[in-house]
Design a protein around this nucleic acid. Structure first.
Lengths: 254, 254
DNA sequence: AGTAGAGTTCCGGTCATTGGAACCTATATT
DNA sequence: AATATAGGTTCCAATGACCGGAACTCTACT
């Protein structure tokens, strides 16, 4: 009776609907009820129910004893085959482990993804400070050490494009002035590493270096620590050696 | 004209088709052409083409310069929200890093998934031996240390069920006799750890211990090393302390 | 017991989906 | 250069899988 797939205006394919449902999950919302999925995906309840049932059948969603849906192990498993995991994370992990043991601080590895810093992995125990980053999570480019590195090594046009949009403020120390940020980016690229001071989380600072391949910055390696015990020159040296080690690791085959 | 979705017998939903296409990828085949996807998913070329195009639009697939399709970063990113990654891997990672640094050998963390050992993570550098395991990959339960642990702590019925099916042989040393394997499993549970000697890859041995929560074995922690330099009693002690550390980590909230 | 909210099933209408066929486009072979 | 082959893309008529409102069931809470 009613025209199918016109509720939200543009018609969406079945696969698009499935992806939309999976896209409802994020770091804050890792377990959702059917109603929440229906609301967030903008699909009617009955349609959501059907789509969800098919995703459950395929192992892409699982329903817990609390009746909430979570991302299935199958998605995780297939996701491991993505180049970012297979080529980068896997090869860098031993170096990250060594860095973590050496410094005892949070170690992060990030790449540029959809205009944000995508955290490819993070090692940080209870002994190290609490941070906002999490493997698979996105953070802005201008409030973190790794983000600044990823942005600084972009083309001038890409940098201008990023600066032309409003810069979000996460803490009172976040740099939201495009002119000031541009100066900082130039400085970052010149000296070869980035610093962030309480720009993402209060009390924390971070240092980050690029992992370069043929002049391109393919990833950024960083440390997050409490500002009071952050020996920057020493961290930079340690990070640069580790970045070089990862770069070599990436060169093997392909 | 032709009846839709009856080529392969049972009708498959659109979402099921999307999942089938994504399911074509595995550790051996991380980059596939459209033809290969069509062949493996049992879908006609034109249908595959449409499904793939929608997956690309949604960021679930990407096409490289070699015209091959690969799993998109988005799948990896969403997969990180799965409990196996979010609850287990993330919390265990610092301990795995410490273990790796302490031993210098391959460290593996696995859970039971669909009758196989699913590797939740693996840290192993070029210094450690080459192994078959990889994060996100599956291996049989009876040919690896972690697999034996996961199986040994299952219910007697589940063990019988596993033993009733033919046991695959990976190396000449693989235990394929159900009676012999059962004895080994009993012994494993009694002594509290598992050993495998060249049952998965030639020259390698492994030691593994369970991570227990309320009597249930939620994961297995193992080391893979060259048989000649494997100090079993020492590795067992190190692993058990690490397993206890991970168990405590899992107890924090929920 | 009653109520609200969440979740599930039903079902007729219809439009997105389907796949064969035709058509491109590179790469290899003659 | 011409031809062949495989791989990939577009087209289009036919149709049955998908659509979602409505009715119903289940669960949790008062």
């Amino acid at each position: 009776m009613s025209p199918a797939r016109t509720t939200a205006g543009a018609p969406i394919s079945s696969i698009g609907r499935g992806i939309a449902v999976l896209g409802c999950f994020n770091e804050r919302r890792r377990a959702l009820t059917l109603s929440e999925l229906s609301e967030k995906s903008l699909l009617p309840m009955s349609s959501t129910h059907r789509v969800v049932a098919e995703l459950v059948t395929g192992g892409f969603l699982v329903r817990g004893s609390d009746r909430r849906y979570r991302i299935g192990t199958r998605v995780w498993s297939i996701g491991q085959l993505a180049p970012v995991s297979d080529q980068l994370r896997h090869r860098a992990l031993p170096t990250l482990a060594r860095l973590y043991e050496e410094t005892g601080e949070n170690i992060t590895l990030a790449v540029l993804d959809r205009g944000q810093a995508l955290y490819v992995d993070r090692i940080g125990g209870e002994r190290s400070v609490h941070t906002a980053s999490r493997a698979g999570g996105h953070l802005p480019l201008h409030t973190t050490g790794v983000g600044k590195v990823l942005l600084a090594w972009q083309s001038p046009e890409a940098i201008e494009k990023y600066l032309s949009r409003p810069l979000s403020r996460t803490t009172p120390y976040s740099i939201v002035d495009p002119v000031k940020l541009k100066t900082e980016l130039v400085e970052t690229k010149n000296r070869g590493y980035a610093i962030a001071r309480q720009e993402s989380t209060a009390g924390n600072g971070s240092v980050a270096v690029p992992i370069l391949r043929g002049g391109r910055c393919v990833a950024a390696l960083g440390v997050v620590a409490h500002l009071t015990h952050m020996d920057i020159p020493r961290l930079v040296e340690t990070l640069q050696m580790a970045a070089d080690s990862i770069r070599k690791e990436l060169e093997d085959d392909h």
